[in-house]
Nucleic acid binder design. Structure first.
Lengths: 246, 246
DNA sequence: CGTTTTATTGAAACACCTCAACAACGGTGG
DNA sequence: CCACCGTTGTTGAGGTGTTTCAATAAAACG
């Protein structure tokens, strides 16, 4: 699979009618990146940031740690995702963002985003669109943790990640890189490490999917979707939309 | 308590440096409203909408129903909240919005939002800001359902709602209207109706808060916050921010 | 005043958690 | 290349938070 040099522009262009000169702007913004080792924080809770992070390569996650040490991962960030407009619009981070693998991240200064919203309505709407897709994913996540069993929950997460990785060209036919430990999966799905272990075993022995060596392989896509109870309308976020009005 | 005629503008103005002419635009947009009976849907899953709903009066919720009938409420909408930009930016609704009480909702046509993003950068950023605050609330909700016990979860929800109602002038010193059945609370917190009943009883007998006759009264705010494990930085979303650049 | 909705209670079942030990793996240094 | 060590994965067993079922009480409604 060939990976886009600018997954951010690639994604926005695929789903919105972004003009060429807007794409050029995005290209310039991701030209320089910073590299983060795995298990390091890109942004930490409480920090004030005045830039927007854009993932160019690797995999990151948003997470919150409670007083008693319990941790909850609230999102995975893959190439093409904007980490946060918190620096731009909100005061300070209410959660942290950590690199799960060696990652490259572009930093877009606050003033640049300001200028874009001043002068580039279509591009502004494209960025806004992507935050709304993020929000839709968050809602699904709540439904997941709140109303699905561990078994269904795990299936749903895997299918979501598969789709998102496919969209940015990071998934082969039925496999993609998923460099997560069982502890990280547990913190994502709101369960204990022992229970995620047993749940993965069940899904493996039933021939649904296997997670090994940092790669996830889907053996039975139909059953996986069925177990996940995946809502098709949720996919429509990744249909092409027009942003130029009229 | 005196309620603002336009809670939308009131909220945005309180937390952003919105100009007077922008406020005038918002005033015009909420001049006409539609009324919904309680237990009716304002928007339904799968529907295509080409307007944005703004809550002027009442209380609504976003919810998703799974195949097996299990329901999850993912957000409460109070006066001043924008229901969705789905119609504006996304294809179709992936969830429904229902009125919990008799509610008044203003409808802002897609084209008007388009015009605002074309010509009103500061107002655009203010609207964007409010979707980011919604997102932050959603993340807290995931942490809640994923990593807190039923007891902590209930406390957290009540404190969040109290703050949000206070912000729009809908809460007295220690009480506010909360017209939710125990079934609705259960669907919000991802638990069974039997268990929410017992959890509320415990919080009541311990003198934390009482929910009766559609009103919630907080008896011990300090302990409520402590049980909820409320993160103060999460409140910073409701600090005043500048949107005019430089 | 009957009828429907909502709240409450008890008891049994179960999904999931905690604790605690051990096995497998991957890297590091000798 | 092997011994070592930390990390990650796996297993068993007992405990518990939460659910389900089912029945009753209490409000709310027309």
């Amino acid at each position: 699979m060939k990976l886009p040099r600018n997954p951010w522009a690639a994604k926005l262009r695929q789903f919105t009618d972004l003009a060429d000169d807007d794409v050029e702007i995005l290209d310039r913004l991701v030209a320089e990146t910073e590299t983060y080792e795995s298990d390091t924080d890109v942004v930490s809770e409480g920090q004030r940031v005045d830039w927007v992070n854009v993932v160019v390569e690797g995999m990151l996650c948003r997470y919150t740690v409670l007083e008693n040490g319990r941790r909850q991962i609230t999102a995975f960030l893959v190439p093409g995702d904007m980490c946060d407009l918190h620096g731009f619009l909100l005061k300070e981070m209410d959660h942290s963002i950590g690199a799960l693998t060696l990652s490259r991240v572009a930093k877009v200064p606050r003033q640049v985003v300001m200028d874009i919203t001043d002068r580039r309505p279509a591009l502004t709407r494209a960025l806004w669109w992507s935050t709304l897709v993020d929000e839709a994913v968050l809602r699904q996540w709540i439904v997941n943790v709140g109303r699905r069993t561990a078994y269904e929950r795990a299936a749903h997460l895997i299918w979501e990640l598969f789709l998102r990785m496919s969209v940015v060209g990071h998934a082969a036919d039925r496999a993609f890189r998923l460099p997560l430990t069982q502890q990280e999966l547990a913190d994502t799905l709101g369960m204990s490490i022992v229970h995620i272990n047993r749940t993965l075993q069940r899904l493996r022995t039933e021939g649904i999917f296997t997670l090994a060596n940092g790669y996830l392989t889907i053996h039975d896509p139909e059953r996986l979707q069925a177990i996940a109870g995946f809502n098709p309308s949720y996919l429509h976020f990744y249909e092409h939309i027009g942003l130029r009005g009229r």
